[in-house]
Design a protein around this nucleic acid. Structure first.
Length: 492
RNA sequence: GGCGCUAUCGUCUAGGGGUUAGGACGUGAGAUUCUCAAUCUUAAAACCCGGGUUCGAUUCCCGGUAGCGCUACCA
């Protein structure tokens, strides 16, 4: 969703600005939640936003392909051997130990701590188990986890967004590195552990991520220290919340990148919007940014630590701005999919239809926040039901006036007598004639005509609408022409 | 419960010991138009609370409150 997208964007911007590499690593150590299709969606979303990565996992089915970049493989599920090897190293150096406590034991330990209002921290029961006992347990095939020994010192690190963060050591359990394995099957390593290993091995200099792992970061730092590795720089981004101030989730509807795309938001608008969720430019005033402009302006120092509420209204505003900057051809091409059933498939469409549709999009695009709203706005071009139009409340009042009937019959007379396509000039002349002949002017004159032509009282100016209707009518795609519309409407 | 993070208009933010607290989105009004949209003009709208430091605090410090996170053999 947009929160993850923002994290990716900030990483990408930071890498581009500082001349670094943007690395895509797939963290799939939990089997149920990791499915190939999620991965494909992620790649697609990133590319749609324009965030190409410098290093990343293989996208082929070739098992020996380690992906793009020198530090592959980039899927954690393909790196298990590495994690295991490093765990053994820590074990051998006695910086980690085997913990034979069962989940039940740990659970009851925690319940007791809770009842006594004490911090829920692992007791360290297995921490200094005599070698003999360890060996005996291991020989007996007793399942175990591997835990890291946390020292007595407070754990601290510097965060580029939050400043210095410190956690007292007694508030931190010895973290589990490797989950319980089964006989001869090593357990799966835990996220907090693999992340530290990978970041170190892949030469990550800056870890820019959401703030959920903030409290876990000291544990990761402890892992670095256990290996004697230099810690990277950390930057923890604030959470993005939904309009109800709760963290973004499926509940908040269409906040996934794929959903925004499907609604017809432009990638540059989405990028612009999420860039501004938690970051502001130096002058505090500029609001519209392209990706290259963001690369120029972006610094981690200016990232806000406080959570931000995602607001569709602002995305809409930005989208309108970027729609205004997009070429009509591109907009038409993007909008095509929303006119399924009304237009032929894009591949089958003649040049004339394509050109006409570009006109249509240009005529209506200023009225929409996102491209999928184009369809309801422009639907009447493809015809409408006169009875329904007459019945509509806002129309019936207009049509009830005597003047409306006069205007309509005058208009129908002229339309019937006119065989060629109606041009804006001709139409304007008609309206002037009717006005002069009947003395009806302004709204009373134009409203009925507009309703007869479009079925509604609101819409684009006639000078542009008339050519679009007549142009469509000439195309044999089921668009009724001016005369047909008037006759049908008056005939009811 | 413990620990951590956060707190400026409705929303995103700028700012910072003395400011008319700035901008954008949204909202209201007006101009324009047959109408809608766009456009232009314009208005309303904010420093969470309490204490301390200080001549002065929205800004610094402490506490409270609220929101969020971590406290998992989730990521």
């Amino acid at each position: 969703h947009v929160g993850n997208a923002r994290t990716a964007l900030y990483n990408w911007l930071f890498a581009r600005r500082t001349g670094g590499d943007f690395i895509l690593r797939v963290e799939d150590t939990e089997v149920e939640r990791s499915q190939p299709r999620y991965e494909g969606q992620l790649f697609q979303d990133l590319r749609w936003l324009g965030l190409e990565w410098d290093e990343g996992p293989s996208e082929t089915t070739d098992k020996s392909d380690k992906g793009k970049g020198a530090f592959g493989p980039y899927r954690q599920s393909e790196r298990l051997v590495i994690y295991e090897k490093h765990a053994y190293k820590l074990l051998a150096e006695e910086k980690a130990y085997r913990c034979f406590c069962t989940p039940e034991e740990l659970e009851s330990e925690r319940t007791k701590q809770e009842e006594e209002y004490r911090p829920q921290v692992y007791s360290g029961k297995c921490r200094n188990l005599p070698l003999k006992v360890v060996r005996k347990n291991a020989d007996a095939g007793k399942p175990y986890t591997v835990r890291l020994k946390i020292g007595e010192q407070p754990l601290r690190f510097h965060d580029l967004v939050r400043g210095d963060v410190e956690l007292p050591a007694e508030a931190v359990s010895d973290p589990i590195l490797i989950r319980t394995g089964r006989k001869n099957v090593p357990g799966m390593p835990v996220y907090n552990y693999v992340v530290a290993i990978d970041d170190a091995l892949m030469g990550i200099t800056h870890v820019i991520r959401g703030d959920e792992p903030l409290s876990d970061t000291p544990k990761q730092v402890a892992i670095y220290e256990a290996f004697g590795w230099k810690t990277p720089q950390f930057a923890h981004l604030s959470t993005i919340l939904g309009p109800d101030q709760e963290r973004l989730s499926r509940r908040h509807g269409a906040t996934s990148i794929a959903a925004l795309r499907a609604m017809g938001y432009l990638p540059e608008a989405v990028v612009n919007d999420i860039a501004l969720l938690g970051w502001g430019p130096e002058d505090g005033k500029a609001e519209t940014f392209t990706l290259p402009e963001l690369v120029q302006a972006f610094t981690l120092e200016r990232v806000t630590p406080s959570p931000a509420v995602f607001d569709f209204a602002r995305l809409d505003g930005l989208n309108r701005h970027w729609i205004g900057n997009a070429t009509p051809e591109r907009l038409a091409s993007l909008a095509w999919e929303y006119f399924g059933g009304l237009l032929p498939a894009k591949e089958d469409a003649s040049d004339a239809i394509i050109i006409w549709f570009v006109e249509l999009v240009q005529l209506f695009v200023s009225t929409v926040d996102h491209l999928d709203q184009l369809t309801p706005r422009a639907l009447f071009i493809f015809g409408f039901n006169p009875e329904e139009a007459r019945a509509k409340e806002e129309n019936s009042a207009v049509l009830a006036a005597n003047s409306a009937g006069v205007v309509l019959s005058e208009l129908a007379n002229r339309a019937r007598a006119h065989q060629e396509a109606v041009t804006p000039e001709i139409f304007r002349q008609w309206m002037e004639e009717i006005g002069a002949a009947t003395g009806i002017q302004g709204e009373e004159l134009y409203y009925p005509a507009r309703i007869a032509l479009t079925g509604t009282h609101a819409g684009p100016e006639f000078d542009r609408l008339i050519p679009l209707i007549e142009g469509g009518a000439a195309l044999d795609i089921g668009v009724p022409g001016i005369r047909e519309r008037v006759e049908k409407f008056v005939g009811v």
